[in-house]
């Protein structure tokens, strides 16, 4: 049951796409979650709904919008190409963007919940001890929201690993470039005699997801103990 080089390549690519997609969305997700949890501003509920769009829209629609916006001839895509020489359409980076966006609302929700559970009195106490707003954020707020951050990262990582619709619409299904695990499974089901390979890849997906779950559950529990202030 040893993995073939092709299978290794698919796993490597899937993890790379999900990893970068999630990593790059973390700072933005924290900022958005903080804004929604702590600030009231005009258009807040509209903004909230916009952030949640990828959760309710058909993924194909998200992928199509990405293609319109970030494709070579899209307004943003053309600009990136012209000024920075960056092309994301039909590249793995584009797959990472699609994956990150589809997981984004899940991450924001989890982080926002944990920010809302933080006693703002602790932040006030930190300020009376001489800490400015940024220092308060990094030394008090951020450590206390770690359980939510870990949960959010896991959820969006799992979502990214399973991303299909937006990815295939935006960056197509190119072997070794954008063919992640779900796309590879799909490809195998489209060729005669590909059933066995599709099953192998599906089992691989189960193993990967389980590993991610167990790993993050452990992290979340550790972080929660820490945030509650009990001795380790």
């Amino acid at each position: 049951m040893a993995l073939t080089p092709d299978e290794w390549e698919i796993i490597r690519l899937s993890l790379k796409v999900a990893f970068w997609g999630v990593l790059c969305s973390i700072p933005l997700a924290i900022a958005v979650a903080y804004l929604l949890a702590r600030h009231d501003f005009p258009g807040r509920s509209l903004f909230d709904a916009f952030v949640h769009l990828p959760l309710v829209l058909p993924p194909v629609v998200v992928g199509y919008f990405l293609l319109l916006l970030l494709g070579r001839r899209g307004p943003l895509g053309a600009m990136l190409d012209e000024y920075f020489g960056i092309v994301v359409a039909f590249r793995w980076t584009g797959a990472a963007i699609a994956a990150g966006i589809m997981g984004f609302p899940l991450m924001v929700r989890a982080i926002r919940l944990s920010i809302e559970s933080i006693d703002i009195g602790l932040e006030a106490a930190a300020r009376t001890l001489g800490a400015g707003r940024w220092r308060v954020f990094f030394t008090v707020t951020l450590p206390l929201m770690l359980p939510g951050l870990f949960t959010g990262v896991l959820l969006s990582f799992a979502r990214s690993l399973g991303e299909f619709g937006a990815t295939i619409t935006f960056v197509s299904n190119i072997p070794d470039e954008t063919r992640t695990l779900p796309l590879a499974i799909f490809a195998q089901t489209q060729v005669p005699g590909g059933d066995a390979e599709a099953l192998r890849l599906s089992l691989l997906a189960v193993v990967l997801s389980m590993a991610a779950l167990v790993c993050s559950e452990w992290l979340v529990r550790r972080a929660q103990r820490h945030a509650r202030g009990h001795d380790a």
Binding site: G121, L122, A125, L129, G130, V140, A227
Partner: peptide
């Protein structure tokens, strides 16, 4: 943070 006024709160508010 620039007032240098210490504050002991009713509930302690230690960093957990």
């Amino acid at each position: 943070e620039r007032r240098r006024v210490g504050y002991v709160f009713q509930e302690g508010r230690l960093f957990p």
